[in-house]
Every structure is written in C-alpha cells, then in structure tokens.
C-alpha cells in the first residue's frame, strides 16, 4: 500500500482569505452613482434667435439668492407645492386659458393622435442660489412629469409605467417630455 499522504493544515487559509477580504473592503466603495438625469441643450449659435413662445405656454420659475421661489409672479412658500403647479400647468384638464395650450400630435409609438401640451417650464436661478435648492426644484419638476406619465399609463393601459412595453414607455415619454428650459442665471447676489 502506498504511503498515506499527510493532511494539509488548512487552518491558516482562513486567515489569508480574511486578509484579502479586509483589503478589498478597504480599497473599494459600494456607492453606486445615482441621481437626477438631465440633457443639457446644445450651445446657442450667436446669430440664432430665441424662439418666441406664447406667454401662456411658459411656466416661469424663478429662484432668488435667498432660495425663495416665484412661479409665474406668485410666491411659493414650500417647494413641494411646485409639483402640483407643474402638473396642473402641463396637463391643463379644464382647458384654462391661462395654462398651457394643448394640441393634437401623432405619436408613432402608440399609433394615434393624442393631445399634447405645448407648455415649457422655464427655470431661472441666481448665481447665489444654493445647489440643494436647485436640486429640490429639479426634483419636484421630475416628480411632476413622472406622475403625469404614471397617471397616463394607469388610465390608458391599466398598468404602472414601469411595467409597460418599451414602445409604450417611449410613447408616453413623448406625450410628456421633460421640457425644462434653463435660462442664463441672474447675478443679483453680488460677487461671483
């Protein structure tokens, strides 16, 4: 009979792998990148004119140096009111002449004509506005559009937006595009 091979002592193996584990724990980070996504507009050519918009189709949001909100000339005390204002402005269910105009548009992905708002949200902030305020405004606007999409999905397909097919989602995104236009910031806050 061949000689029995002695068993390897694997006790220290655990120590080695523990060492590796701690090394990786220290050198890596779990945080995944997440946030609010936006598309910046391409830079304006100098001779290009800013397109004229009907006054009623613009929801003007101003944020001043003290992080106060002015929406179409009206002071909002809480950012959270902004969501409903935006939804109302875009959807305009009662066809109020002071809110955005609706026009019929053919949406390929859904294959039918749908009333789409012409409204654009115009956002202007001061150079001294704080970033956290800016982001919460952006957050409220995103929320407004997301809820409009969700409501449309529920009403017309009886499903949540996330469970729709890709073309349906695209179609709804075309009905409620995130139309936010950011004006050049003002500089009332003084120094740069």
């Amino acid at each position: 009979m061949a000689k029995k091979t002695p068993g390897l002592n694997t006790g220290s193996m655990a120590d080695i792998s523990f060492l590796l584990l701690t090394f990786f724990l220290l050198t890596s980070s779990i945080n995944t990148d997440q946030g609010i996504q936006r598309r910046l507009p391409p830079p304006l050519a100098p001779e290009q004119d800013v397109p004229e918009m009907n006054r009623r189709n613009v929801l003007q949001i101003l944020v001043n140096m003290n992080d106060q909100l002015l929406v179409n000339g009206e002071v909002l005390t809480d950012v959270r009111q902004l969501k409903n204002r935006t939804k109302e402005f875009i959807a305009n269910p009662t066809n109020n002449p002071s809110l955005s105009e609706q026009h019929s548009k053919y949406i390929e992905d859904l294959g039918e004509n749908i009333m789409v708002s012409k409204g654009v949200v115009s956002l202007q902030n001061d150079r001294s506005t704080s970033y956290s305020m800016y982001l919460s405004v952006q957050n409220q606007l995103t929320k407004a559009f997301n809820e409009l999409r969700e409501e449309y999905a529920q009403q017309n397909f009886g499903k949540s937006f996330d469970n729709l097919s890709e073309s349906q989602q695209k179609g709804i995104q075309k009905i409620y595009p995130i139309s936010i236009s950011e004006a050049e910031p003002s500089n009332y806050g003084g120094k740069k």
Binding site: L40, P41, P43, L135
Partner: peptide, 15 residues
C-alpha cells in the same frame, strides 16, 4: 456652460 461648449450633454446631478 463649459460642458455644453464641449458637447457633453448627458448630465447627472448626483443625489
């Protein structure tokens, strides 16, 4: 503004 100039349009505001 610089990102627009450099045609880097896809922006994420980390939060």
């Amino acid at each position: 503004q610089e990102l627009r100039k450099a045609s880097a349009f896809k922006v994420n505001y980390a939060s």
